[in-house]
Amino acid sequence: MTNVERSGAVIAIDALAAQRGVRMLFEGLNFRAVPGEVVELRGPNGSGKSTLLRIMAGLTRPYAGSFSIGSGDQDAPRHYLGHADGVKPNETALEQVCFWARFFGQSEASAHLALERMGLKSRARVPGRGLSAGQRRRLALTRLLLDDRPVWLLDEPVSALDAEGRVCVETLIAEHASAGGIVVAAMHGPSLAGARLLDLSAIGGNSPVSSSGARVSG
């Protein structure tokens, strides 16, 4: 049984609000996600999709509200894939995957498998600066495969990917969900199959907040 199947992690978000500068991105956001679910964040640029993912990853503090990811009071381990790929220009693809494997306490064999899975095997000896944008994205996505974690937070996982890469990511997400994991992904363009949509533009925000921090009405 994998970690993912055992965890039974759920995501619970209550009355969450996020602010960027003086703009309220969204507020009063409530949602639940249960094991096996794929939640797709939609909304125009600047509607707070990335910020919501960063809050869930623990990188940014929310303006108000609370969230928990895990079962009971146990925090579930999660993968966060931001829109920067975190690829080093002077390390080869293989070196970088091996580094992340060691970072997660995994064997180098899993690094080779992850590279193969993302279709980067032929590029293993190429340094990061020699990879195309799509290949760098694939390299970043290998991190998801290195450590078995129940919750995936993905910021535009298919950006810069070709059709084949997109299919590869969709398969990964579907497999993860069917193994009992949760995927929250910010997306543009075509939707993921079987995903529940969460439209941040419908939750509102994007209105200026007054200096006291309270939202200006009207």
Binding site: H79, Y80, K88
Partner: peptide, 14 residues
Amino acid sequence: LEDGTLDAYAGSGV
């Protein structure tokens, strides 16, 4: 910080 590695470190739970 610039290439996103720090985000990945911080989001990893380490």
